[in-house]
Write a protein that binds this DNA or RNA. Structure first.
Lengths: 218, 218
DNA sequence: TTTTTGTACGGTGTATACAGTATACATGGT
DNA sequence: ACCATGTATACTGTATACACCGTACAAAAA
């Protein structure tokens, strides 16, 4: 009763972090835009300190970069880095698929199936929505392992690709939003051996890399 | 000529970060010790700001935690978290071993062999030295992929275990520093199929987990 | 014009100052 | 002795102030 005090006092920096990140995902901040500490601080009526903390965190996560004294901006990543990121995804998500297939449960399969259904039900096909649901599906698979550290890695590696993903996706928007692909993947996780599930996931990720590179090259 | 200006001006926070981290690895900071921003700042004659940035980063990386208003301290992790960490290691390092075996090169094998030799040559068997060389071996394997993102993940996940590892190792210091284990692993990477290399690495990591848990339980 | 030099400005990094709150300790009542 | 209450202290989090330096632009020299 009387409401419990939270263990750790909230930090403005966390808010700012969330706001900036979702602004990137929503396309309100584009590559090339300059993020100035004081500007942001003034805009939301707080001081530079928490804003700075948020920006530094985003920098460390590879999402932003600091260009000399011209402020922060979305980091442009090279093709090699994209390949690297997808390599990590193979490692993490492949492991996740393996684990889920090895520790199969109705509840776990169900959780994933729900996300896939969400994708199928998706009406608006803007890139941001596509991105989110796609990430959610993959994230849900990894989340089924119950391994928090693994999920952290997942979030970390997906954070890096954000802007690039959206950029490439916008270019090659012939990209069909085929939920069939995910259905197939789910099928293997549901019925295949762990090794098969892992292989299917890795192949699926590789396909994504192909798209990405194609979008980058044009 | 005339020396080049570094692209980005150095930050005191990075120094502080390194210092605190190595102080942890060297055992100068033990679990339970309280890290107070002002104290640290005074000790190295800088202001609280960069110290705070370093501490926040260490907190985000799961190495430190903030306990109310009692300052930061080394984060104690549960057995479940240890298991999680080792799961991630299986994913990342298993992938690394697979990759190296699949893209075998004399130079790559050599680089790893050198580290293993270093371990064998090790004279002082204090826990910190053991920890470092062990990590270096594993890190070198992953590094051979040339995948920077993967290496980041490696560093990230190893950072979390530091204190726990040292703690457990100190307890069960019957732990023999057997370089044979790593030699065997290297052998599989050198001569086996990629799948075999991956399996060997995963098994090796699992053995490590066993030790860790044992040390934790006592 | 073109190039150099000066200068104001913009932006980060660091230091300091302020506010708020949990913790610790002391004090007094029982 | 023990518990409750008050009060000081010790931290963190946030705001503000200062220092420094690269950039941009303007003015002067060629």
């Amino acid at each position: 009763m009387f409401k419990r005090m939270p263990d750790v006092q909230p930090r403005l920096a966390d808010d700012v972090y969330e706001q900036i990140l979702s602004a990137i995902v929503n396309g309100q901040i584009a590559p090339g835009d300059r993020l100035i500490q004081e500007k942001i601080a003034a805009e939301i009526n707080i001081s530079r300190t928490p804003v700075r903390e948020a920006l530094l965190r985003l920098e460390r996560e590879g999402i932003l970069e600091l260009s000399g004294r011209k402020g922060f901006s979305i980091r442009q990543i090279s093709e090699e880095e994209v390949r690297d990121i997808y390599g990590v995804r193979e490692a993490i998500e492949g492991y996740g698929a393996y684990w889920v297939a090895a520790n199969r449960t109705d509840a776990r399969i169900q959780a994933i199936a729900e996300k896939v259904a969400e994708e199928r039900a998706l009406k608006e096909h803007d890139m941001q929505a596509e991105f989110r649901i796609n990430r959610d599906i993959h994230r849900t698979i990894v989340a089924q392992t119950g391994n928090k550290a693994l999920l952290d890695m997942f979030d970390s590696i997906w954070g890096r690709g954000i802007s690039q993903w959206l950029f490439a996706a916008t270019r090659t928007n012939q990209t069909p939003p085929d939920p069939d692909v995910h259905d197939k993947l789910l099928g293997v996780i549901k019925n295949g051996t762990p090794a098969e599930a892992q292989a299917a996931m890795i192949e699926h990720v590789r396909d994504g890399l192909g798209m990405q590179i194609k979008g980058l090259k044009e």
